[in-house]
Amino acid sequence: MGDQAESTLISSNNHQVFRVVGLSLRLAAIPLCAASLWVMATNKQANESYGKVEFSDLPGLRYMVCISAISLGYSVVSILFACLGCVNNDWFFFISDQVVAYLMVTSGSAVAEVLYLAREGDRKASWSEACSYYGRFCDRTKVSLALHLAALLCFIALFLVSSYTVFSKFEAPSVSDSSKGVGE
C-alpha cells in the first residue's frame, strides 16, 4: 500500500474515532445539563425569620437556568444533526461548541459570584452572609453549579475535538530553507 493511501486510511480512522468521541461527549452533556437545570429550577427555601428565597429571585441563577436549557437543547439538536447528517459541516460544530462553552463559562461565573456573596457577604455594601439562614438553598446551588461545570468540561472537550476535526483537514505550513536568500 502506498504512503498516500495509508495516510488517507489513518486520517479516515481518526475522523471516525473523533466523531464517536464527539457524539459521546454530546450524550454525556445531556444528563448533566438536565440535572443542573432541574436542581436549580426547583431550588427554593423558606425561612421563618427572613422569608422565602427562590432561584428566580437572583438574576445570576436565572441566567444559569437559561444557559443550561440552551446547552441541553443544543446538545440534543447537535446529536440529531450529526446522526442524520443534516449538518455535515465541521465548521458549524466548531463555532457552535465554542459559543455554548463560552456561555456556560459566563453563567457559571455568575453563579459562583452569587454563591460567594451568599457565603461571605459584603461588609462594604452592608450585606451579611445568607447561607447560614438558607443552607439547603446554598447547598442545592452548589450541586447545580458542580453539574453545570461538569457539562462545561464536556463542551470544552467537544471544542477541542471539533477543533481537531476542522484543522486536521489542512496541511501544516512548510518550513522555508533559511540558507537561501530572500531574492533567490
Results as ranks from 00 to 15, higher is better:
73 G>N: 02
132 S>I: 14
86 C>D: 10
138 C>E: 12
108 G>P: 08
94 F>I: 09
37 L>V: 02
67 I>G: 03
111 V>T: 09
177 D>E: 07
37 L>M: 07
33 C>V: 02
112 A>V: 08
97 D>A: 00
133 Y>H: 15
26 R>E: 00
38 W>E: 00
84 L>T: 15
173 P>E: 09
51 G>Y: 06
22 G>D: 06
4 Q>L: 13
175 V>A: 13
172 A>P: 04
147 L>P: 03
2 G>A: 12
146 A>M: 15
49 S>G: 13
180 K>I: 11
1 M>E: 07
163 S>G: 11
113 E>P: 05
122 D>T: 08
81 F>H: 07
143 V>C: 05
88 N>W: 08
83 C>T: 14
128 S>V: 14
84 L>Y: 13
9 L>T: 13
60 G>R: 07
28 A>D: 04
163 S>Q: 06
62 R>E: 07
13 N>W: 12
110 A>W: 10
162 S>A: 15
19 R>N: 15
114 V>F: 05
181 G>R: 10
9 L>H: 13
140 R>I: 01
35 A>Y: 08
63 Y>M: 11
37 L>N: 02
7 S>C: 07
177 D>M: 06
19 R>Q: 14
28 A>G: 10
140 R>D: 07
26 R>Y: 02
134 Y>L: 06
60 G>E: 15
32 L>R: 03
173 P>C: 03
10 I>E: 12
16 Q>Y: 11
75 S>T: 03
146 A>P: 07
37 L>H: 03
96 S>V: 03
165 T>G: 01
150 A>P: 09
54 E>H: 05
105 V>A: 06
121 G>V: 10
110 A>M: 07
184 E>P: 03
122 D>G: 08
183 G>Q: 14
113 E>F: 10
178 S>L: 13
9 L>D: 13
68 S>Q: 05
81 F>K: 06
33 C>R: 00
136 R>K: 14
49 S>Q: 15
114 V>E: 06
66 C>M: 15
168 S>R: 13
63 Y>Q: 12
101 A>L: 01
65 V>F: 04
42 T>P: 00
17 V>H: 11
92 F>S: 02
156 I>D: 04
149 L>H: 05
11 S>N: 11
101 A>F: 00
17 V>A: 13
25 L>V: 06
145 L>S: 08
90 D>T: 14
155 F>Q: 02
64 M>W: 00
52 K>E: 10
123 R>I: 14
64 M>V: 00
170 F>P: 04
160 L>M: 11
95 I>Q: 01
152 L>R: 02
136 R>E: 12
